[in-house]
Design a protein around this nucleic acid. Structure first.
Length: 267
DNA sequence: AGAATTACCTGAGCGC
DNA sequence: TGCGCTCAGGTAATTC
């Protein structure tokens, strides 16, 4: 599942390949995603040039000059980049064809993704306007987290997964960051000290940056933007030894999400 | 306002 | 082999 590092790796690759290219054709095979894909994309986009591609949380923002193409890959979405025409397979919902012959294909079995169009400042789009600070920038600080968490009773793991608190932290990296910060995921957010918040803010950034540096938990392949999992410290390792102390990792559910932690290391 | 729950969706894995 | 069940989870929408 694409988390922030995968989206960022995808963004870099697509910007390298598509900036300066213009849409020539858009094929909409399936438009019933979690939110409906606007059918007018097929008439709006052809002739427009991609100026650049930005990211906000896990949203990709294609700057098309007169408007912005917004994409979210949901749980199972990914983007393939083909050098030329390619026959569509199952779940290949959308094709974006460019003037150099390249084909950007939106593939999403569970249809949890989002593809939309917005004119004006994209950060004012309803889906983006309430998103919290970007974790890879100084906007996510210990002081900010401490202030935001004040008096909050929700578990710290659910708190950092709330997109209005921090942008783009999903279940995998929430588990990893809390392990690194040695903080139990079920602690009430408001009980963290300012020092713990500083550690956590730094560790959220570290786990995301390390993942991007290694090509993310996913790796960008030649002809496609493809995903290959890397080893993670705790996620998916419940019942196995803690990589730090050897104790057996606990696996529970928090907010109906799989949660793995070491009750010896994390307090 | 904050917390909790539901809806959306399909493939994989499992027990029988 | 196949049926039915559970699980995976981002996030918007809804309810309490």
């Amino acid at each position: 599942m694409p988390e922030l590092p995968e989206v960022e790796v995808t963004r870099r690759r697509l910007e390298r390949e598509l900036a300066g290219k213009s849409f020539t054709q858009v094929v909409l095979r399936v438009t019933k995603l979690r939110l409906p894909v606007p059918p007018e994309l097929a008439t709006i986009l052809p002739g427009l040039m991609v100026r650049g591609i930005e990211r906000r949380g896990k949203y990709l923002l294609f700057d098309c000059g007169s408007g912005w193409l917004l994409m979210h890959l949901g749980m199972t979405g990914f983007l393939q980049l083909h050098r030329g025409a390619a026959p569509p397979g199952k779940h290949d919902h959308l094709d974006f064809i460019f003037n150099d012959g390249q084909l950007l294909r939106y593939h999403d079995p569970r249809k949890f993704g989002t593809v939309s169009w917005f004119t004006g400042d994209p950060l004012r789009h309803p889906l983006l306007a309430e998103i919290g600070p970007e974790p890879l920038t100084a906007a996510l600080s210990g002081a900010y987290l401490f202030e935001a968490a004040s008096k909050r009773k929700v578990a710290i793991k659910q708190f950092i997964m709330d997109s209005s608190v921090v942008a783009g932290v999903g279940n995998i990296y929430a588990n990893e960051a809390l392990f690194r910060a040695r903080i139990r995921p079920d602690r009430a957010a408001g009980t963290l000290t300012i020092h713990e918040c500083a550690e956590l803010a730094a560790d959220i950034r570290t786990v995301l940056e390390e993942s991007i540096g290694e090509g993310s938990t996913y790796r960008v392949a030649e002809e496609t933007v493809a995903y290959y999992p890397l080893a993670l410290k705790v996620y998916g390792r419940g019942g196995k030894p803690c990589p730090a102390c050897g104790a057996i990792l606990d696996e529970t559910r928090l907010g109906n999400r799989s949660t793995v932690f070491c009750s010896t290391c994390q307090k």
